[in-house]
């Protein structure tokens, strides 16, 4: 049983509670409890966005094709990797090294499969030569980085259709070795962008990042995302 004690204690408790709330409210802008920004979990396969999206300049929408038509950008189907990785089995360095060794040893170069690619083959139940092993294929358990709560309906396709760059929300993924959440993806952050973006991009040039008047910016209706 908790008994609050004499009157001064009770008064103090109330004052403290109010003050605490005021403190939390006052620092809300700094989002002291934000734990999402910078989240970069380790993935089952060390897939490098820096290599694929940056160095090789593969379009984001090639793998995340859902963003064109769907709410979800989606994790690409494992089979999609095989469009390239049926042929590309290792880094060029490793291939050249193997060729060098093979020449030195005077034999045919062997097929080099790097560890991450082998993990991909394992998931698809393929052996190092790309032939089915007969085992049951298993989807790779990627760890989700960007996860909005269920009560938010975010539609990738609308933003892609409007020409919003993927990097606007996801940060410079093309330079990330391991993907990390760059922004907090909180509601204030969403609304801020909506307030700065003109409703009709042709008619109204963005005035230097300043906030626009309500009729001129894109919707900030609650039901734009919450329904």
């Amino acid at each position: 049983m908790l008994t609050p004690g004499p009157l001064p204690v009770r008064v103090f408790l109330v004052v403290a509670a109010v003050a605490g709330l005021a403190l939390v409210a006052g620092t809300a802008d700094r989002r002291p409890l934000n734990v999402h920004t910078g989240y970069a979990p380790e993935q089952p396969i060390p897939y490098s966005h820096r290599l694929h999206a940056g160095e090789l300049s593969i379009d984001c929408l090639y793998c995340h094709f859902g963003a064109r038509t769907s709410r979800h950008a989606g994790i690409p189907p494992t089979g999609l990797c095989m469009n390239c990785h049926a042929q590309v089995t290792s880094s060029l360095d490793a291939l050249l090294a193997e060729r060098g060794i093979a020449e030195a040893e005077d034999r045919e170069p062997e097929r080099v499969v790097s560890a991450p690619i082998q993990a991909l083959y394992d998931a698809l139940a393929l052996d190092a030569d790309g032939q089915p092993t007969g085992a049951e294929p298993r989807s790779i358990p990627w760890v989700r980085v960007h996860a909005l709560p269920d009560f938010v309906a975010f539609d990738h396709s609308v933003h892609v259709a409007r020409g919003v760059a993927c990097q606007s929300c996801h940060g410079p993924v093309q330079s990330m070795e391991r993907v990390r959440q760059e922004t907090d993806l909180g509601m204030g952050w969403c609304v801020d962008c909506h307030r700065r973006s003109p409703r009709d991009p042709a008619a109204l040039a963005p005035p230097g990042g300043a906030r626009l008047d309500p009729p001129h910016h894109v919707t900030t209706d609650c039901v734009a995302c919450h329904y």
Binding site: V35, H36, Y39, P41, F65, G66, T69, S70, R71, H72, G74, I75, P76, P77, T78, G79, L80, A123, L124, P137, S139, I140, P141, W142, V143, R144, A147
Partner: peptide, 22 residues
């Protein structure tokens, strides 16, 4: 602390014409 890590399992092979969420 974040909630428990969520794993995301994708299709193994892309099914023609099917996009998750559409």
């Amino acid at each position: 602390s974040r909630g428990p890590a969520q794993t995301a399992l994708a299709h193994l092979t892309p099914r023609e014409g099917e996009v998750p969420g559409v």
